[in-house]
């Protein structure tokens, strides 16, 4: 008989054990990971932010790089978190059979799913943190508002990490990951107020873009870092992000559980 104390302990550490498994594997290949997590977005920061930005005298009253930086944090978190679960979890589920081994232990499917989402989110967050550090070294961030901004970036990462897992629950083969990637994630990266303000969009599209999660992440982070946005508007953006996250996590929980135990 396992004592109720042990049961409670297992309940408490389940998600963290799954997270810890990923961290352990990550540590083995962190240099490889560093490239797509930090080096790549750093190049975007310099080429778009400083490079292209040099031709734009001011945008919404600030330098282009200042306008772009909040978006880059969200973009980085989105890309890294989404690909971590979409590719990583797909492989764990279908090739490596990692989850199938995990459910032989006292871990519950729910803990595996939450642990994976948390890990994808952490990796996206870590990546944005890396970009922040680079930007700080170059004297770009000098403001404590970066802390609440990064909190929103973390929510954004969790949302896209769950979306990646939702994709895994639908696709039948590895190639199909390119459908949501090229049809949703990449287009979103261009049109959600990332490289240019939403005001530049045709009216009809502008409202459509508000249906996309990245718009709210960029809106909130930019609102926090640049100021000038009423607090309730920032709050509204965050609320949308949280609601979407809740919705996606619920869907993922149902769909992936069925793949683990059927």
């Amino acid at each position: 008989m396992i004592s109720s104390g042990k049961d409670l302990y297992l309940k408490r550490v389940g998600i963290w054990n799954v997270w810890g498994r990923n961290f352990l594997v990550f540590r083995k290949s962190w240099i490889v990971n560093l490239f797509w997590m930090v080096v790549e977005p750093t190049f975007v920061l310099f080429s778009i932010g400083y490079g292209v930005g040099a031709f734009i005298s001011s945008i919404q009253g600030v330098a282009y790089v200042d306008f772009f930086f909040p978006a880059l944090l969200c973009l980085t978190a989105m890309m890294v978190a989404f690909f971590e679960t979409a590719y990583g979890s797909y492989s764990k589920l279908n090739f490596q059979k990692i989850y199938q081994a995990m459910i032989l232990s006292p871990l519950e499917p729910k803990e595996i799913i939450f642990g994976e989402i948390l890990w994808g989110g952490s990796k996206g967050f870590l990546s944005a943190l890396g970009v922040t550090l680079v930007a700080t070294v170059f004297g770009h961030t000098d403001n404590l508002l970066i802390i609440p901004a990064l909190l929103v970036v973390f929510i954004c990462a969790i949302l896209f990490s769950s979306l990646g897992l939702l994709v895994v629950s639908f696709i039948k083969s590895h190639d199909q990951i390119s459908v949501p990637t090229s049809g949703f994630i990449v287009p979103m990266s261009f049109i959600c107020g990332t490289y240019f303000p939403l005001e530049q969009m045709p009216v009809a599209l502008k409202y459509l873009v508000y249906l996309l999660p990245l718009t709210h992440a960029v809106g909130a982070v930019r609102g926090i870092l640049l100021g000038g946005m009423p607090w309730w508007q920032i709050g509204l953006h965050i609320l949308v992000l949280l609601l979407l996250t809740l919705l996606v996590v619920r869907a993922v929980q149902g769909r992936i559980s069925k793949k683990l135990i059927h």
Binding site: Q96, Y99, P106, E108
Partner: peptide, 28 residues
């Protein structure tokens, strides 16, 4: 959960951690 903590399983698809060492697999 209580049952799984008292049983051991040798499945057909082993699901071993290929990036980890033999010892790390057991510890994990």
């Amino acid at each position: 959960r209580e049952i799984r903590s008292q049983i051991g399983v040798v499945p057909t698809e082993d699901g071993l951690e290929t990036e980890l060492s033999v010892r790390e697999n057991l510890i994990l």
